[in-house]
């Protein structure tokens, strides 16, 4: 009898905790890409309203309970942490759950860690809590979501998870060495 066991992008990996800042692999969650067809955002909004959400503006995200909807590109947002409601023929919905590795980076050195690799103004005035942007983590394509002033979620292609983790850990170690 076949028995398929799921493995996380990095398997089991010990969280990194340095200078009060933590880097943790986030457990699997349902992720669905929602891409409204031409002129159908209002229909998508109606469907999402049932779970207290609406299609986000560029570079923004919103949460309701466990469900989050985050902008991830032109005419595209990811529903994370909940099943996607029935959108009828208003949007293309594609399962992306396994395509991404997700890391939580939080603590006082989170911003400086990201600043090593992400060529984006990370000041709160420019990237407020609730921002969701596409950028790069050094060479790795990135979705970056700001959960709090010092808390981020980092999403990278699953296959590149090792490189991304290594980069973040490396920056944290450098910052820790600098702090001494």
């Amino acid at each position: 009898m076949v028995n398929l066991i799921a493995t996380a992008p990095l398997g089991y990996i010990k969280p990194v905790s340095l200078i009060g800042t933590d880097l943790v692999q986030i457990d699997w969650a349902q992720i669905t890409s929602i891409a409204p067809y031409l002129g159908r955002v209002a229909d998508v909004d109606r469907a999402l309203a049932k779970i207290g959400l609406r299609f986000p503006a560029p570079n923004r995200m919103a949460s309701h309970g466990d469900a989050r909807i985050a902008w991830t590109g032109r005419d595209q947002a990811f529903m994370i942490g909940a099943d996607c409601p029935d959108l009828g023929d208003a949007a293309a919905a594609v399962d992306q759950s396994d395509a991404w590795a997700r890391f939580a980076l939080s603590g006082p050195a989170a911003v400086d860690t990201l600043a090593h690799y992400v060529p984006v103004d990370l000041r709160l005035s420019s990237l407020p809590v609730g921002a969701s942007i596409r950028s790069q983590l050094y060479h790795v394509p990135l979705c970056l979501m700001r959960i709090g002033a010092d808390a981020f979620e980092v999403m990278v292609f699953r296959s590149m998870a090792h490189t991304a983790w290594h980069e973040l850990e490396d920056a944290l170690r450098i910052l820790a060495a600098r702090a001494h």
């Binding site: 890409s33 891409a35 067809y37 031409l38 005419d75 595209q76 949007a91 293309a92 594609v94 399962d95 992306q96 759950s97 396994d98 395509a99 991404w100 292609f157 699953r158 296959s159």
Partner: peptide, 14 residues
């Protein structure tokens, strides 16, 4: 741009 379609990479999803 007037073609009504959407596409996304699923290379990493499967």
């Amino acid at each position: 741009a007037d073609f009504d379609l959407r596409f996304i990479s699923v290379t990493e999803a499967f």
